[in-house]
Design a protein around this nucleic acid. Structure first.
Lengths: 240, 240
DNA sequence: ACCTGAACACCGTTCAAGT
DNA sequence: ACCTGAACACCGTTCAAGT
C-alpha cells in the first residue's frame, strides 16, 4: 500500500521538519534561494491578515514578493505548508515573558489566557487555521512548554496542569473566534445587538431577556468572566 | 457610497432571510425549482462531511444532485450562502430534549455541553465554519433560546445565564475542534503521543512530564474535566 | 418564462523551456 | 544547475443561448 504523506500542520508532518527553533525551516529545500523562508511566511501572514484566508492566494503572495508562484515551490511544498508556518508564526508572537513574574498557578493561567487572547485578536483570520490542529510547530511547542513549566513550578500537579492548559486555550480560541472571527465586522457587538432587537419577543423570550442583561457589559469583561470560571473551578481540585 | 451586502452567515445577513423555522428558506428564490433547498443543504452537508470544506465544490454538489452548477444559483446566492445553511443545519441536529428533565442549572449546562459535543463530533469539517460567526440562523437561535430558557427556569440570573452559555459553548467548540478537527486522523491521540515521544526531553521537560501524566486518560474524561471547571466555577457566583 | 451549457476569470500545482 | 513562464486541470460565478 502506498503511504499517504501526513497533512501539513499535523504532528507527523511537523515531526518530519527540521526543528530550528524558528518559525520557518532554517535552510531552503534545495538550491540557494533569493527569498528566505522567514520573509515568505511573514509576507503571507500580512496578506492573510489583510485579505483573509479565503482571498489569500499564491499568486498574490508571489506578486508581493516580486516573484512567481513556481518559485514558492522551491521553498515550500505548497499552500497548506505555508499556512502551517503562518499559524506557528502567530503563536510565536504570543509574549509570555510576564510568566516569570507570576507568583501562583492562578496568575499564570490568567496571564496566559490574556496574552493568547491579545495575539489571536490581532490575527482573526488565522483562527480557523489554528482550530484545525493541536499546534505543535516550534513556536507552539515552545509556548506550551513555558506555560506548563510555570504551572509545575507553582506546584500544580502535572495532570492538572496539562488539562488546565487545554481547557484555558480552548476557551480562548473559542471566545476570540466568535468575538473577532474572520468575517465579523469591526462593530460586531452592535450588529448583534441590533439583530437581537429585531427578533420577535414572543418567539425568543429567554434569549432577549439574557441579551438585554448583557448590553452594557464590555466584551473584555465577558472574557474575564469565563476565565474566572475556569480558574475558580480548578481551585478545589488542587487542594484535594 | 455603495452599500456592500452583509456576508452570508452574519447577523445582518440572517436578518434579511425569511425565518421559516427550518434550516433552509421555505420557498425558492424565484420560479418553481426541481430541487428543494432542504435537499440541497442536506446533500451539501453530506459532501462536506465526506470530503471536507476544502474539497467540497459546487460542481461536486451539482453532480450529486444530478444538476448543473448554474442551477444552484436559482436557490442560493452562492457557495458561502449554502455553507451558512449547512452550519445552521448541523446546529439543528443538536438534540436538547433532555433539557426538559434537568432539575438544576448545573445539570442543564452539563447536558447542553455534552449534546453539542456529540453533534459537533459528527461533523468535524464544519467546525471552522461554526467558528466564523455567532451562529444566529433559525436552528442556532432555537438552541440558544432553549438552553437559556432552561437556565432561567432553574433560577439562574439572566446575566449569569448568558455568560455561562457563551463560556460553555466556546469551550465545547474549542475542545471538539482540536479533538477531532477537520484534518485530524482517526487515531489522533496516538499520533500526538508518538510525536511527543520523539521530542528531546531536555528541550521540553515540562511538556513531556505533563504529557506522560495524561497518556492513560481518555478523551471523554478530559472533556468532562474542563466542563466541571466551568460549572464549579459558576457556583459561588450564583450564591452571591 | 424558466433552465443550463458553455464561457469567464480565477485558483493550486507542475514541468519543460529558458538562463 | 537553478529558476520560472506558461500550461494544466480545476474552481466560483455569470449569461446568452436554448427549451
Amino acid at each position: 500500500m502506498a503511504a499517504t504523506p501526513p497533512p501539513p500542520g499535523s504532528p507527523a508532518w511537523w515531526a518530519a521538519r527540521p526543528a530550528p527553533s524558528r518559525s520557518a525551516p532554517a535552510e531552503p529545500r534545495r538550491g540557494r534561494p533569493s527569498l528566505d523562508t522567514a520573509h515568505i511566511v511573514g509576507t503571507a501572514l500580512r496578506l492573510v491578515d489583510e485579505h483573509g484566508t479565503q482571498a489569500f492566494s499564491l499568486r498574490m503572495l508571489a506578486e508581493a514578493l516580486n516573484s512567481g508562484t513556481a518559485t514558492l515551490y522551491r521553498h515550500f511544498d505548497g499552500k497548506d505548508e505555508i499556512l502551517a508556518y503562518v499559524v506557528d508564526r502567530v503563536l510565536g508572537e504570543v509574549d509570555l515573558d510576564a510568566l516569570a513574574d507570576t507568583t501562583d498557578w492562578r496568575e499564570t493561567l490568567t496571564v496566559t489566557a490574556r496574552r493568547f487572547h491579545t495575539t489571536l485578536s490581532r490575527h482573526p483570520h488565522t483562527l480557523p487555521l489554528l482550530i484545525a490542529y493541536v499546534p505543535v510547530g516550534p513556536h507552539g511547542l515552545d509556548r506550551r512548554e513555558r506555560v506548563l513549566g510555570a504551572l509545575l513550578a507553582h506546584g500544580l500537579p502535572a495532570a492538572l496542569a496539562a488539562r488546565a492548559f487545554t481547557a484555558v486555550t480552548h476557551y480562548v480560541i473559542g471566545f476570540t473566534a466568535q468575538q473577532c472571527g474572520p468575517s465579523t465586522t469591526p462593530d460586531h457587538a452592535a450588529e448583534l445587538a441590533a439583530f437581537y432587537g429585531g427578533l420577535d419577543p414572543d418567539a425568543y423570550p429567554s434569549l432577549l431577556r439574557a441579551a438585554r442583561s448583557l448590553t452594557s457589559v464590555a466584551v473584555d469583561e465577558e472574557f474575564e468572566f469565563g476565565l474566572t470560571l475556569l480558574v475558580q473551578g480548578l481551585a478545589p481540585l488542587v487542594r484535594a
